[in-house]
Amino acid sequence: MAEPLLTVEGLKKYYPIEGGVWRKTIGYVKAVDGVSFEVFKGETFGLVGESGCGKSTTGRALMRLIEPTEGRVVFAGQDITALDKRMLRKLRKDIQMIFQDPFASLNPRQTVGQIIEEPMIVHKIGTKAERKKRVRELLEVVGLSSAYADRYPHQFSGGQRQRIGIARALAVDPKLIIADEPISALDVSIQSQVLNLLQDLQEAFGLTFLFIAHDLSAVHHFADRVGVMYLGRLVEVAESDRLYASPKHPYTKALLASVPVPDPDYKSEGEVLQGDVPNPADPPSGCAFHPRCPFATDHCRRVRPELKTVEEEHRVACHLYA
């Protein structure tokens, strides 16, 4: 396979919990607790998991939108975690983000043209005329009319606003796009429009995606490889088809068995997972999944399993596969 464009090693993000009269730190929310993976050039790496498992925090910490507590992130041969502010700003041009809520992420007082042009101004790209031309091109690329440049975000539907967000991300020719739940706020018929657009752009411009979503069907459809997160840690990483055809971690299995299938003849197999996701401020000992796992042993309750390669291109953090 190609060389990794992004390598994440032991990434951690702990949020302090303050308490008492002196507002002392009395503990930590271990939002991301030692996550390692790599994203290869031109591929889509999907990050899935239930609410609060640390997907967004991972995406933000790896480009230092929030400072990681620990860990190393190497992007295109450069150690992001070691960069100073100025270098970091330069590097941000190469990593762009697309957000879940296309409305909240667009400034309502700017025209669509200004919104898309802004990252070019920030990174000092082109003359004014060149930038205007590029804005019109980008609007066409994402399937909007270039005549929309003078309109304001509120004049657009959710799907159109997401297209504007995508055009803005593309404006500076990024190498990596982190898309955090880019379709979950959209209508069903619009979700496939946006997924298809991202797919087309990837083919046209050789883009690399980190695709964060809780919708397992969408991730399976769009991603080449997938990492499954549970309570701040990766529990399984594999090529997409392989992960869905033969999941190994009991959590991945349960997750897949829970996805409603749009076929009334289909009878889902597999156990329904009992209980709730535990509190990340007070994670269970050993394997964080053990209180909900039907196969948990004493060993699981005591010792935390590491992510290990169990088959070619298939990594699992579970004692069952030791």
Binding site: S189, Q191, S192, S217, H220, H221, D241, P262
Partner: peptide, 12 residues
């Protein structure tokens, strides 16, 4: 237009 887990289409 919805992806199906059991049957991955090239394009939706």
């Amino acid at each position: 237009s919805v992806p199906d887990l059991r049957n991955r289409k090239k394009r939706l």
